[in-house]
Write a protein that binds this DNA or RNA. Sequence first.
DNA 1: TATAATTTTCAAAAATTTCTGAAAATAAAG
DNA 2: CTTTATTTTCAGAAATTTTTGAAAATTATA
Lengths: 180, 180
Amino acid sequence: MKLDNQTEMFVMHFGEMGSRWGFSRTIGQMLALIVITPESLNADDISETLKISRGNVSMALKELQSWRLVKLVHKAGDRKDYFVAAGSIWDLAKTVFEERSKREVDPTLSMLRGALLETPEDEAAQYSQQKMQEIHDLLELLTQWAHTLNDMTPEKLQTLMKLGSGVVKLLDMKNKITGK
Amino acid sequence: MKLDNQTEMFVMHFGEMGSRWGFSRTIGQMLALIVITPESLNADDISETLKISRGNVSMALKELQSWRLVKLVHKAGDRKDYFVAAGSIWDLAKTVFEERSKREVDPTLSMLRGALLETPEDEAAQYSQQKMQEIHDLLELLTQWAHTLNDMTPEKLQTLMKLGSGVVKLLDMKNKITGK
DNA sequence: TATAATTTTCAAAAATTTCTGAAAATAAAG
DNA sequence: CTTTATTTTCAGAAATTTTTGAAAATTATA
């Protein structure tokens, strides 16, 4: 499969960026390719188009499935596995956000909970624990908030975001009414 | 400087996590150490405590300063450079968020803008461009939103997040009044 | 200006991550 | 059951990132 210039640039760019977003170059490129291709792709298509070894493609597809970013589909009369994006761009973005939170924030939260159960030995340990408490509270708040956002429809989310700084005014309004 | 068990665990954990957050293990450990230490630290303190070479500490401090996460302070009658966290936990979190957005989202946005100026050659290129448009719009919305959040005080932010799913009701309320 | 203290730089080494490709495993078809 | 198609695995190779440590540069003091 031949990609046009702009598309190739896009795919390569997502490869570079992929590594910053928690997955390898290959995985980034593959996700980009699957997203911008109208038809479903099989492992050989991907391997040829991106010039990546068959084994690597197989591993990367497993990874992308574990991230819930692509899904496996079948074609009648074809034994090969085909892959498509697991939803709209919004869905994918939400999924990445959710998965990263699960992989990056949750382990930290449990580490912090453990540390906060101990009794501090001295002055320094106490200060340290206080900071850990602050980080814990912040992460917990962020996690809750992420769940809230994840339960919202893309439309609601979009409305909220487009509100921009208006949200502050809305908060003030709400406080005037309920907070009294 | 000797760290107590819990603190050491915390510092090491942030080392592991650091790599997922866009900086190296060393940088993660150093930031954690600086944050949980009540006093300011100099490069030798850090090098000794974390058993990291002096050169590495120097480079990592540069990096942390470029991320605006630590700041340089001086002590009277002492020629050494000392470092402290560049603000509260909330401040640091906001800064990481902001910097990452600048480093990861902005380059993608400009790449996408470039690609969207081209006229698509064929059916496939057109589909591809449509997806790029969707990604562009999403990223732009996220960027704007990030700016909004960044302009809010921690208190307002906290209020907003604690509102949780209540924010949906608030949006509905607002729509009823203004949207008519 | 010379000396001493401190920080920075960077080539090479070490560690880690990613990738390849051939062999093994699995699954479908004949 | 055998053959063929397809996917997966994984040891070693390649690429990339991180770290060290000694030399160079910088800055302050005498």
